[in-house]
């Protein structure tokens, strides 16, 4: 079951090729992280998924329908929180929430009031007086109070304070438990790590990686430093080992995640005195995909017991 399927999506704005054969699959019932550097094309993709922009080429399916042709019918089943929430200055926050809810096909009043309380939002204030974070909350409350199958959230927590961010995570987790599907574009790594079942990373309008966080980790190499009694020989010839450098008793190398076992067996023959490995943090993982991969900042190695991961 797929909630969103995108294949070979192309969108150009004049000379800019904002989306360049982008692929994206979001399964029903998952929280899917949608990541990429600024200008990668996340918002553009989302707007195509909502029928706000027309695609130039490619296949796009949302909840089994065509987002451009079936926009109205699909929008009854989904809720959207834009990256930049714009409201009518002379409507109150409460009015805006009710309006969005009702245009989407109704909202749960008790839930709405609970959300207002939890997000600490005063619904009687005019929208023009809301801060960025509070405008964001209006859209979040309206989306969460609607009973929909799919939530499309474009950087929903930009501008929220840490307390509100925590409330947000709580609600997204509850939505996932209730079997709803969430597409979550975000620049907040801890948020992605805490909430997402799977992620897609895009760069310059193209999907560069897609899968569970564990899978993404496996695709990367782990730098290791080993201190042995005798100089290590024959390491570079092993499958999955790269960038071997030796200085005295210390050998540094990088190893692909799936091939650790034979490497350890090989090293044991030289009398291992110390072994440190630096598994990439999520942050580094993304940096690698965001940039061109070469300029990853190296953090101080932290010792990890072998095999603990």
């Amino acid at each position: 079951m797929t909630a969103i399927s995108v294949a070979g999506l192309v969108k150009t704005f004049g000379a800019t090729r904002a989306l360049d054969e982008l692929d994206l699959t979001v399964r029903s019932g998952e929280v899917h992280g949608f990541l990429g550097p600024n200008g990668a094309g996340k918002s553009t993709t989302i707007r195509i998924l909502l029928g706000l922009l027309r695609r130039d080429a490619g296949e796009v399916g949302v909840l089994g329908g065509d987002p451009w042709r079936d926009a109205v019918a699909l929008h009854r089943r989904l809720a959207y929180v834009p990256g930049d929430v714009n409201l009518w200055p002379n409507l109150s926050g409460g009015e805006a929430i009710d309006l969005f809810g009702s245009l989407r096909g109704g909202l749960d009043r008790a839930r709405r009031d609970e959300l207002l309380r939890r997000f600490d939002l005063d619904p009687t204030k005019k929208c023009r007086t809301y801060s960025k974070g509070n405008r964001q909350k209006v859209a979040i409350v309206a989306a969460f109070a609607s009973d929909v199958e799919l939530l499309v959230l474009d950087e929903p927590t930009s501008g929220l304070d840490p307390l509100m961010e925590a409330v947000f995570r709580e609600y997204v987790a509850a939505l996932r438990d209730a079997g709803r599907t969430v597409l979550l574009s975000s620049h907040v790594m801890s948020e992605v790590e805490a909430l997402c079942d799977r992620v897609s990373i895009i760069r310059a309008g193209r999907t560069v990686e897609s899968g569970t966080l564990a899978e993404l980790r496996h695709l990367t190499r782990t730098p290791m430093t080993v201190e042995t009694e005798r100089p290590v020989a024959g390491l570079a010839e092993l499958a999955g080992v790269h960038a071997v450098t030796a200085s005295g008793a210390t050998t540094r190398f990088e190893v692909e995640s799936g091939t650790l076992d034979p490497v350890l067996a090989h090293l044991a023959r030289f009398g291992v005195r110390a072994l440190t490995s630096t598994p990439p943090t999520l942050e580094e993982l993304f940096m690698r995909h965001y940039g061109d991969g070469s300029e990853v900042a190296v953090t101080a190695p932290r010792p990890v017991p072998v095999g603990a991961r």
Binding site: L50, A71, A73, H75, P82, D84, N86, W88, F100, L103
Partner: peptide
Amino acid sequence: GTLEGILATAVG
């Protein structure tokens, strides 16, 4: 930008 929000609801 307010139209974006409206057209993302079930209003054609």
